[in-house]
Structure formats: C-alpha cells, structure tokens
Simulated assay, not measured.
Amino acid sequence: MLAPVLIFVYARPEHTRKTIESLASNCLASATDVFIFSDAPKNDKANEKVMLVRDYIDTLSDKKMFRSVKIIKSEFNKGLANSVISGVNEIIKLNRQVIVLEDDLVTSPDFLSYMNDALNFYETDKKIWSISGYTFDLDFPDNYKSEVYLSYRGSSWGWATWKDRWDSVDWQVSDYMIFKKEKSLRDKFNRGGRDMSAMLDAQMDGKIDSWAIRWCYSQFKSDMFTVYPKVSRVKNIGLDGSGTHSGISSRYDTSLNTSTKKCEFDHPELNDIIIRSFKNKFGTRFEYFVIWNKKIIKKMLRI
C-alpha cells in the first residue's frame, strides 16, 4: 500500500497547477491517494485567487490523475501551521505514514517511488525522524558513496514521516522556558542551522506561525535524523514573492533529479563535512532577525 499524499494549497493557482501536474507525471501517481487541503482566504484581497485555486482542484477528480482525490475546503482561514497540523492529524490516524507537499513544490518523476521506498526502508529505524524529498546542491566528499545523507534538521519542502513520530510531537513546546535559558541546548539545536533557536524564539513569542520549527524541535528532543537525497526530488518554485511566508530568493535553487535509476537506500553515518555544508546554507541568528524586521516594516508600510 502506497502512502497517501497530502497537498496544502492556498492562493497560488499557477503554482498549484504545476505542483499537481508534476506529481501526476510520477509513475506511481495512478496508484496514489491524494488529499488536497484548501485554506479559506485570510482577507478580501486573497479571495479571488483562493477561488481560482478551488476551481482548478475541483476539476481533478474527473481527470483521473491519481487513484483518488479528496478535497477538504476550510470554511475559515486556519493559516499554514494549523492547516498542516490538523490535516496531517486527520489523515495519519488511518495511515501509518504520509507524504506531504505544499502548493509551490515541483517534483521529479521518481518522487513517489523515492518517498515510498524510503518510508518502507527506514520505518523500523528509530533514529530516523522523517524523509526529505528536497536537498540543496551540496559538495559531497569524494569518498562518500551513499545516495542519501543524514541531517539534524527536517525539511518542509516535500517530506514524509510515520504515525509514531508525528504523534510524539509536543506542539505546545511545554519545556520552552528551560530551553530558552540553557545555552548548551540552544547550541545543540543549532546543529541543524544557526537560525533554529531564533526561529523557535520567534514562534513562542508569537512573531511567526510555524509548524515546521516545532516539528524540528521535537526531532531534536528525540535525537533523531532526517534522510536527504544527494540529488533533489523537489524544487521550490515559490520563492518568487507570491507566498504568504516567503520572499524572493534564488538561494535555495537546486537541480531536480532526472535519472530513471532507483535510489539505493542504506544506513549512512553522519558525515561532518556534509553537516557543515548543509548548516552553512542557513543564515545566522542576526540575519534571521534582520530579514524578519524587514518583513514587518514592509507590512507596516502597506497598512
């Protein structure tokens, strides 16, 4: 049985179309159940584009792209974090594993086979928290032979996990006050990127609304890893200023896998060179707050 795919959409009709059509080009698409969660508009400005997205996804059942398509339309605006948490909660109750996409992710033709094979291979490995379909273009050591690598940090750009991992997350981050004051814990959390502790601070201060940083924090608390491919199966097309939570950037551009060869999974050791290269893709705490403050200023100028 293949893992169901959950797709979270909002107000980007063209991005949504590209996301769904690329997924439909996968060889396992016709055997895959797809659940599309459509959030309601946050304001009148978003209403037209949300309706365009909904008009498009309403046509999918007749197109027979997938084994089945179920569309869940929210009657009120939940925001991305609550949409993802509640949506995954709903579907994972009946499935031991899920694959998750958002509306700005183009996938390679082998994305579904890569994700399903990885889910099956690592399910009983209790050191693995999640599977990522996305990866940066990294420079790997010449002697590194595995087709995947491990990281301390999960990815929200095309990912998969299992029910037992998902159910263990403390979405309230009930021990945050201890973490906030403990430098050794903050430094350890930042092994996945120098921005991580600052992002959790911003989440708990109500400055951002992120499911992903809380997901990563629970991964850190569990001392587990995310499996990444050496060659990406996902490309983010949403860093063009069109998204609610993203600006304009080419920093995370990556090469999409074109090989027809199936990925061979193994149990690689954590590699310090790769971890350092991965970590360097993220900004510092200072950079994070500079970017955040710029966004706040821009929002204030639009009021």
Rank of each mutant, 00 (worst) to 15 (best):
R302F: 15
L28M: 09
N89C: 06
S259Y: 09
N47M: 03
I71A: 14
S250K: 01
I57H: 07
V88S: 02
K279E: 12
T107I: 14
M300V: 14
E75P: 10
N143H: 10
T32A: 06
I248T: 07
K145T: 11
G283S: 04
F225Q: 03
A40T: 03
N143G: 06
F66D: 07
N47G: 12
V53G: 03
K230S: 02
I208T: 10
K279S: 12
D167E: 08
K298W: 08
Q97E: 11
E269V: 14
N236M: 02
V231P: 02
I7F: 00
L52F: 15
G283V: 04
V148F: 05
D272C: 13
R186Q: 15
D209W: 09
T16M: 12
S249N: 09
G87L: 14
M224R: 15
D205E: 10
D104G: 13
D125G: 05
F179Q: 12
F189D: 04
T161I: 05
N236Y: 04
K261G: 08
K126G: 05
K188P: 03
I99W: 15
F111A: 15
E75R: 01
N95W: 05
K49V: 12
P141F: 07
K261R: 04
T59W: 11
N293L: 11
T135A: 03
M196V: 01
Y56R: 01
I178K: 14
F278E: 12
Q172A: 11
D58E: 03
Y56F: 15
I20L: 14
